[in-house]
C-alpha cells in the first residue's frame, strides 16, 4: 500500500512539507506523523529520504481503489 508505516517518528514535520501529494499530516493529539491520505501516495520516496530518523517505510505496491458507479 505505497507508504506503509511510520515508526519512531519524532514529529519534526519534515515529511509533511516534503510530500508532493499531501499524504502525511501531523496528528493533532500525538504530534507525530500519520499517513492521512494513503491513496494519494505516488511512491516517490521523498518523505523517506528527507526523514531525519528514517522512520518511514514504503512498499512498491499500491492498492487500487474500488470502482463504484456513483461519484
Amino acid at each position: 500500500m505505497a507508504i506503509n508505516s511510520i515508526n519512531g517518528c519524532i514529529g519534526c514535520g519534515t515529511c509533511v512539507k516534503t510530500c508532493p501529494t499531501d499524504v502525511i499530516r501531523l496528528d493533532k493529539r500525538t504530534g507525530k506523523a500519520v499517513i492521512a491520505y494513503p491513496a494519494d501516495c505516488q511512491i516517490c520516496h521523498l518523505c523517506r529520504m528527507y526523514c531525519p530518523v528514517d522512520a518511514i517505510t514504503i512498499t512498491p505496491d499500491k492498492s487500487i481503489p474500488v470502482i463504484v458507479s456513483w461519484g
Binding site: I10, G11, C12, T14, G31, P52, V53
Partner: peptide, 15 residues
C-alpha cells in the same frame, strides 16, 4: 543535518 533536526525538535515530548 538529520542529527540537528533530531536534537532541535523541541515540540516533541519524546525528544
Amino acid at each position: 543535518e538529520a542529527f540537528i533536526t533530531l536534537l532541535t525538535t523541541f515540540s516533541s515530548t519524546g525528544v
